[in-house]
């Protein structure tokens, strides 16, 4: 693995943090175990880094798992060109701060054909700029294992997925024929060309993520905190109206609202929520009384029933 830096000693923060509560500690232990197991068993692992809160937790756990060494694999950001500007700025800062080895990939076909969420619709756009782009990047890197931050509590088909999720050479997932996965003994045996998606956060819930971010002081994109921001209402969603490429349609107007985001993706497809949560405590108590699920704000999950499973079968994360 020529591109991987030798492990070097990193600074130990020696923080005087209170110990984690046993539930979070158990989740952390499990995730670290998975990271180490995959890093040891596979030749070319890579970690999908999508800049969101789950990715932030995933990265933090990876740093913990390999301490005092460096994270022994690259990070992969599949960019669509339509991410929130604040996400990209955050990403760049994190890469620098933690001395990470990040690959960024944009689907060249999509870029050349100018595929946008506005012109192609969310389904086709996601298919080309995310799923196809991911397959391209995984093939180019010849990665045999890819870490992702998906959680089983996100969606019904994810709830069915193994921690080591087997993929065929063309990146397909066969949910009807998953390998049994007993105890914490993971089967990492694959043939050339096949791969495994590994999900260290499988058993975490959204609240666990936030409580862990709080307990561990993990940096996250500021868009998760409520603030007055310019928005425009479209298809029943509040879209952030900052990017000059967003053209207002007839009848639409820009206005300011105090909003935040529960998940982060491509700005034209991610709906904001009205919220006054400016601190982690606020976010956690907001969640504990929330009446809608986190994926509700995502246009791409609502395209059709069972749409997540379909996308996953085709190689989406």
């Amino acid at each position: 693995m020529p591109h991987i830096h030798p492990e070097t000693e990193l600074h130990n923060p020696q923080s005087a943090k209170p110990p984690l509560d046993p539930h979070l500690k158990a989740l952390e232990n499990e995730a670290i175990h998975i990271f180490r197991e995959v890093a040891a068993e596979f030749e070319r692992p890579v970690m999908l880094y999508s800049i969101g809160k789950d990715s932030s937790v995933l990265l933090h756990l990876a740093r913990k798992a390999f301490y005092p060494g460096r994270v022994p694999f690259q990070l992969l950001h599949v960019n669509t060109g339509w991410k929130f500007a604040e996400m990209i700025a955050f990403r760049n800062e994190i890469v620098e701060r933690y001395d990470l080895d990040l690959i960024e990939h944009v689907n060249p076909r999509g870029a050349a054909e100018n595929v946008t969420p506005f012109t192609h619709g969310s389904a086709l756009y996601t298919d080309i700029m995310k799923t196809e782009a991911l397959r391209q990047a995984l093939d180019a890197g010849q990665f045999d294992a890819a870490f992702g931050g998906a959680r089983r509590d996100e969606e019904a088909s994810r709830a069915k997925e193994r921690i080591y999720s087997f993929r065929t050479p063309d990146h397909r997932w066969d949910p009807r024929n998953q390998r049994p996965e007993l105890w914490n003994v993971y089967n990492g045996m694959i043939r050339k060309g096949e791969s495994v998606r590994a999900f260290p956060l499988s058993n975490w819930t959204e609240v666990d993520i936030w409580r862990y971010i709080q307990a561990e002081d993990i940096p996250i994109v500021p868009l998760y905190f409520a603030e007055k921001r310019p928005i425009v209402e479209r298809d029943g969603m509040m879209i952030l109206a900052e990017d000059p490429r967003l053209e207002l349609l007839p009848g639409e107007t820009k206005r300011e609202e105090v909003i935040r985001f529960r998940t982060l993706g491509c700005f034209p497809l991610t709906g904001a929520i009205r919220s006054n949560a400016t601190t982690l405590d606020d976010i956690i108590s907001e969640l504990e009384t929330a009446t809608v699920s986190e994926r509700q704000g995502r246009a791409i999950d609502r395209d059709q029933s069972g749409s997540m499973e379909k996308k996953k079968r085709e190689g989406y994360f």
Binding site: E86, A89, F90, E93, I94, I213, Q214, E216, D217, I218, P219, I220, V221, P222, Y224, F225, T278, T279, L280, D281, D282
Partner: peptide
Amino acid sequence: MTAPATAN
């Protein structure tokens, strides 16, 4: 740019 989680 990064929001320190100590904000709270």
